[in-house]
Design a protein around this nucleic acid. Structure first.
Lengths: 167, 167
DNA sequence: TATTGTTATACTCTATAACTATA
DNA sequence: TATAGTTATAGAGTATAACAATA
C-alpha cells in the first residue's frame, strides 16, 4: 500500500483529540442535565429535537436512524421507550404502508420546552463561555462543512454488505 | 422567566449540534477501524495513547479515569481487559502504596504503532478532508481553549453526592 | 477520616440475524 | 427481489455502592 493520501499533521492530531475530549465532556455533562431535568437520555433528546424541528413534528423511522447514527433496531428500542412515555406516537405512513411515521406529541413538545433552557445553559457555559461571538461563528463555519462531508460519505445506519452487492 | 446567563444564539446552537454530529460520526467510524485493525475499543485506544505519550509510559489510575471521563470502576474494567491482553501492566505506585501505576507494555506500543496509520487515515479523510491547513489550525485554536476550560471545571470522575436541587 | 482502587451488581444500550409485511 | 420496521438475543460497557488498604 502506498502512503495514505490523508496523513494528519501534529496540529490536526491535536485538534482531533481536542474535539474528541470536548465532545465527550460536553456530552457527559449534558446527559446528566437531561436525566435530572427530564429523565431523558441524549439519544432520546436528539430524537425529540429532530421531531420538534421537523415539519408537522414527524419523521420516518429510517430517517431518524440514519440521522442519529443508530441501527434500526436501536431506534426501534428508543422509539418504544419514548412511545411508552407518551412523548411520541407511531403510525403507519400514509403514502407507504411499509413505513412508520413518528410524531412528537404535545407532551413531547412540552418536555423539550421544559428541558431546553437548562440544556442551553450547560452548552453555553461549557462550550461557548471561552469563545467570543466571532469564535462561535468561526466554529460553526468550520464544522458545518465537515458535517456535510461526513453525511455525504460512506456507511450509514444498517445495511451491512448484503445490499445489492455482488450478484 | 429572565434570560439565562449563558443563553445560546442560533449560530451557537448550530455549531453545537454540528459538533455533536461530527464527533459522533467520527467516533463511529473510528471505532470500526480500531476494532478491525487491533480489536480495540475507542476507550482502550485512548488509554493506550495517553500512556504512550506519557513520560515512561505510565499514569495513575485516577489520572486516567479523570482524563477519559470514566468512573473509576469503569477504568478498572477497561484496565483489566488491557492487562489481560498484555497491553498494559499494573503495579503498586512506589510513592503511594494505595495507588496503582499503569504502564504500557512493548506489545501495547506495538499495537498503537500498528493501528495508528489507519486511524489517522480515517481521521484525515473524515474530519480534515474538507478543511484547509489553515482551517485545521483555526479549529485547533478554537477547541484547545474550550478543552482547557472544560478540564478546569469542577465535575470529574467521581460523581458528587446527590443533594440540593439546582435553582 | 479521606483517598485509591477493586468487586459485585444491576441496568441500559447496541448490534446482528431472523422474521413479517409491503413495494 | 428489495425495502421498512420489529423481535429475539446476546454481549459489552457503565455507574453505584460496598469493601479493603493505605495516607
Amino acid at each position: 500500500m502506498p502512503d495514505p493520501p490523508h496523513a494528519v499533521d501534529p496540529v490536526q492530531l491535536g485538534a482531533y483529540f481536542a474535539l474528541i475530549e470536548v465532545s465527550g465532556l460536553l456530552r457527559h455533562a449534558i446527559e446528566q442535565q437531561l436525566r435530572e431535568a427530564g429523565d431523558l437520555t441524549f439519544v432520546q433528546f436528539q430524537v425529540l429535537m429532530r421531531l420538534d424541528q421537523a415539519a408537522e413534528g414527524s419523521r420516518r423511522m429510517t430517517e431518524l436512524a440514519d440521522a442519529i447514527v443508530h441501527s434500526r433496531s436501536g431506534l426501534t428500542y428508543q422509539a418504544g421507550r419514548l412511545e411508552k412515555a407518551g412523548l411520541i406516537t407511531r403510525t403507519p405512513s400514509p403514502d407507504d404502508e411499509r413505513g412508520v411515521t413518528v410524531t412528537i406529541t404535545d407532551a413531547g413538545r412540552a418536555l423539550i420546552a421544559r428541558v431546553l433552557p437548562g440544556h442551553e445553559e450547560v452548552v453555553g457555559r461549557m462550550l461557548f463561555e471561552p469563545l467570543s461571538r466571532e469564535d462561535s461563528q468561526k466554529l460553526s463555519d468550520l464544522l458545518l462543512p465537515v458535517r456535510d462531508h461526513m453525511r455525504a460519505a460512506p456507511p450509514r445506519s444498517a445495511a451491512p454488505r448484503r445490499r445489492g452487492a455482488p450478484g
